[in-house]
């Protein structure tokens, strides 16, 4: 029996995605070893400290204390892989035309609000999309820009004399370090949401990052769930008629 598959992620994208996972992990871990040596950042409301980066127990639990030399060594070795993988990803995305699935357009922001309401259970339907919905486009495009930001602010604090113009552009040495740190906090927040959404979206979505394709349900062989997802029957802005799904589990390819 034949099944219809949707080719979702090209091989190169899967490689870049999975290489980035351990490499960014090493960068964040070694970054924490470095940050420990001078850890002034906190979020304050007046005199009240909302979040302190980081409490002693955090360093202790993760064994991050007194390892600056080690942290710098790992960081300044693996930064090259992070940079190279990032450059290849951006280059590939641009040349292959994959960017058309990724770069947000003028509808994306409205769509993202819609998707968020849907994810929070405040709306029953989600807007149709091809590969990524508006929220995903914004998230994945931002994470790419954040990568660029990490590399630029990273180099600004790595060689502030040789690349004095870059350091100045990033707001100076101290500011560049703060941005570099804040971006990392951003990655961690992204990661938490990403994992949550991948779990929500289910196995088919997850395995497509390994196999590259999603298998469509046999009952709707010509209905690619990706192009017009309307889990509930009824009126929608989808131009094509929608059939009710026999499967009760709604397909949720939201922010993953």
């Amino acid at each position: 029996m034949k099944r219809r598959i949707v080719h979702k992620h090209p091989l190169a994208i899967r490689w870049f995605h999975w290489i980035n996972f351990p490499v960014l992990g090493i960068m964040i871990w070694s970054g924490l070893l470095i940050y420990w040596a001078y850890d002034p950042y906190k979020i304050q409301l007046g005199d009240w400290t909302l979040v302190s980066f980081f409490p002693d127990g955090f360093y202790k639990a993760l064994k991050l204390s007194r390892r600056l030399a080690e942290g710098m060594a790992w960081h300044f070795v693996f930064m090259w892989i992070f940079l190279l993988n990032g450059l290849l990803y951006v280059g590939y995305t641009f040349i292959s035309g994959e960017w058309r699935h990724l770069v947000p357009n003028r509808n994306s922001f409205r769509e993202a609000v819609h998707v968020t309401l849907y994810d929070l259970g405040l709306r029953k339907d989600q807007p149709p999309f091809i590969k990524y919905n508006g929220a995903q486009k914004i998230a994945y495009f931002s994470i790419m820009l954040m990568g660029v930001g990490s590399i630029l602010t990273g180099y600004a604090i790595y060689k502030p004399t040789q690349f004095y113009w870059l350091t100045a552009l990033m707001g100076g040495y101290k500011t560049a370090r703060l941005i570099h740190f804040a971006l990392t906090v951003g990655y961690v927040l992204f990661f938490v949401i990403h994992i949550g959404q991948v779990i929500r979206a289910g196995w088919q979505n997850f395995q497509s990052m390994v196999t590259g394709f999603e298998v469509l349900k046999p009952s709707e062989p010509d209905r690619p769930a990706l192009t017009d997802v309307t889990p509930e029957p009824g009126p929608s802005d989808d131009p094509e008629p929608t059939e009710p799904r026999p499967d009760s589990t709604p397909f949720q390819p939201a922010l993953s």
């Binding site: 035309g97 509808n107 091809i130 062989p221 690619p224």
Partner: peptide
Amino acid sequence: MKTTNEPDLPESDLPESVIRRRT
């Protein structure tokens, strides 16, 4: 609501055995 410049994802019909093997 499809944006004009975003292409559809390519699709193909394959026997289940091929899909299983590829997976």
